[in-house]
Amino acid sequence: MKDEELSGRLREAAGAHRPDRARMLARIERGMAGGAQAPRSVRPPRAVRPWLRVAGATAAVCGVLAAGAFAVTSAGDDDRARGGQVASAPSPAASTPAARDELRPEDGPLWTGGVVDPHSNAYWAQSNVTLRTTEPLSALTVELRVALTGGVNSTGSWRSLPEPDFTVSVNESGGYLVYRWTLRAGRTVPAGTHTFAGQYNHAEGDRDATGDYVTAHAVRASGGKASVGDHFRRPR
């Protein structure tokens, strides 16, 4: 066979040949399996469907909210573990001396009440304290507290019990004009009804005395203590 004829047949055979890609790739993979692992092919990202984007955003928001709730709960648990509490401002009633004394008008044999004398006027007033005891008292301290509203200043005081039996003081303390009657040592308050009164000037007008109050602390001659108190009321 001539060279020209052979060359022609080879070209025809080459043109008609169709390579088997599957076998070629299999051979290449088998050849590379013995060496370094072939890198994975990188696929172009698919377009994200709209509903997937919405679901993803919702999941992210839920995650943020859950994390915030966990942080708040954890902070509260830490405070409880440390015994810490959020401090609140005390109510006005709890901060007044009257509330601290836990006023009650009756205790055992002792009772007290306070009222503004009906003869008070637009410039001057008298606060009357009534004290009743069914037993003799070997010790007694009565305190009348008049709130320092406009123009309040003392003009005197008195009591129905003998004057030599008591020491008396008047001073300003904690926003009040304080009248204090203290039974002297060795003296006794007999059973009965007794009166203590404080007198004072005030600014012109009808003074509101609901912030005033009285307390009494006593020791019974037979033994035992008693404490009473009362807020003032307007005269009837």
Rank of each mutant, 00 (worst) to 15 (best):
A93K: 06
A93Y: 08
A93I: 08
A94C: 03
A94M: 09
S95V: 15
S95C: 10
S95I: 11
S95D: 12
T96L: 11
T96M: 10
T96G: 10
P97S: 13
A98W: 09
A98P: 08
A98D: 10
A99M: 01
A99S: 10
R100F: 06
R100N: 03
D101E: 15
D101S: 14
D101A: 15
L103G: 06
R104G: 07
R104P: 03
P105D: 09
P105A: 05
P105Q: 08
P105T: 06
P105E: 08
E106H: 13
E106W: 11
D107T: 00
D107C: 05
D107M: 07
G108I: 02
G108K: 09
G108L: 12
P109Q: 01
P109Y: 06
P109C: 01
L110S: 03
L110I: 00
L110A: 02
L110C: 01
W111H: 15
W111C: 01
W111E: 13
T112W: 09
T112M: 15
T112A: 13
G113K: 01
V115S: 05
V115G: 04
V116Y: 09
V116K: 08
V116R: 15
D117C: 03
D117Q: 06
H119T: 09
S120Y: 12
S120I: 09
N121E: 06
N121S: 07
N121V: 02
A122T: 15
A122Q: 14
A122N: 14
Y123W: 13
Y123S: 08
W124Y: 02
W124H: 02
W124C: 00
A125D: 02
A125P: 01
A125G: 03
Q126E: 15
Q126M: 12
S127R: 09
S127T: 11
S127W: 12
S127Q: 14
S127F: 13
S127E: 14
N128S: 14
N128F: 11
N128D: 15
T130G: 07
T130W: 09
T130C: 03
R132T: 15
T133P: 08
T133N: 05
E135V: 15
E135C: 11
E135T: 12
L137Q: 05
L137R: 00
S138K: 08
S138W: 05
S138D: 10
A139R: 01
A139T: 01
L140W: 13
T141H: 01
T141E: 04
T141D: 02
E143K: 13
L144E: 06
L144I: 02
L144D: 01
L144Q: 06
R145N: 08
R145M: 07
R145Y: 09
R145A: 06
R145G: 05
V146H: 08
T149K: 08
T149R: 09
G150M: 06
G150A: 10
G151C: 02
G151E: 04
V152K: 04
V152F: 11
V152D: 07
V152P: 12
S154E: 14
S154Q: 13
S154L: 11
S154M: 11
G156F: 14
S157P: 04
W158T: 06
R159F: 04
R159M: 07
R159V: 03
S160W: 03
S160V: 03
S160K: 03
L161N: 04
P162K: 08
E163R: 09
E163M: 07
E163S: 08
P164T: 01
P164W: 00
D165I: 00
D165K: 00
F166M: 07
T167K: 09
T167F: 10
V168Q: 13
S169H: 10
S169F: 11
V170F: 11
V170D: 12
